[in-house]
Simulated assay, not measured.
Amino acid sequence: MTANPPPNSKRPAKRVGIGARPPANPHAEAWIRQGDGDALNKGDTYTARLTLDITPAMRSRIKVSAFTQGVTVADVLRALLEREFPEHRRENTP
């Protein structure tokens, strides 16, 4: 259904169709799916999102620390958590 323009409109009533989808190019599809080399490496490791509430002051201190180290906040927090909770931790046994 094409809507007619108001009588005083200067635009003609014209309906433009969208053309057919171009045929798929297997080489282009493979290139798109390949993505960035870094993205593939990041996908090798399973990750899970962790959300926690902190004060704005704590968030600011973390951000400043990350900035001065030249890394992201996520990198700083991952390193901190890895130090505190290493994969192979010795248990303190009496």
Rank of each mutant, 00 (worst) to 15 (best):
A39C: 07
P94D: 10
Q34W: 01
V73C: 13
P7W: 02
Q69R: 15
H88T: 08
W31F: 11
T45P: 00
P22E: 12
S65D: 08
L80Y: 09
F67D: 15
A28M: 09
I62H: 06
A79G: 08
P6I: 05
L80C: 12
L77T: 00
K10S: 15
P94C: 02
I32S: 06
D53V: 10
E91L: 10
R89A: 12
R15S: 03
R61G: 06
A48K: 14
A79R: 14
M58S: 08
K63N: 13
T55W: 07
T47I: 03
K10P: 01
V76T: 13
T2N: 09
N4S: 09
P23H: 13
A24Y: 12
T72C: 00
G70W: 00
Q34A: 12
N92P: 05
S9G: 01
I18M: 10
L80E: 06
D53R: 15
A79Q: 12
R49E: 09
R78Y: 03
A66W: 00
F67H: 12
L77M: 07
P26S: 10
T93F: 14
T72E: 00
A79K: 12
F85K: 00
N92Q: 10
Q34V: 03
F67Q: 11
R33H: 05
T2G: 13
N25H: 04
A79F: 04
L52P: 06
T72V: 01
P26L: 11
L50T: 02
I18N: 14
I62Y: 05
R49V: 02
P56W: 10
R78S: 07
R89W: 02
V64S: 13
H88L: 06
V16D: 01
R59Q: 11
K10M: 13
E84H: 09
P94H: 06
P22M: 08
A30L: 09
P22V: 01
F85I: 05
E84Y: 07
S9W: 04
D75C: 02
R61W: 01
S65I: 00
R49K: 05
I32L: 11
V71Y: 02
G35L: 01
Q34Y: 03
S65H: 05
T47C: 05
K42W: 06
L80A: 14
L50A: 04
A24I: 15
G35D: 04
D75A: 11
G37H: 11
R21G: 03
P26G: 08
R11F: 08
T93E: 15
R90G: 04
D44R: 15
H88G: 08
R33F: 04
R83V: 08
F67L: 11
L52Y: 05
M58D: 10
D44G: 11
P12H: 08
F67Y: 08
D36T: 10
H88Y: 06
R61F: 04
A3Q: 13
A28P: 03
H88F: 07
L80P: 01
D36F: 05
E87H: 03
P12T: 03
A24G: 11
N8I: 04
N4P: 07
L50D: 02
N4W: 07
L81Y: 02
G17E: 02
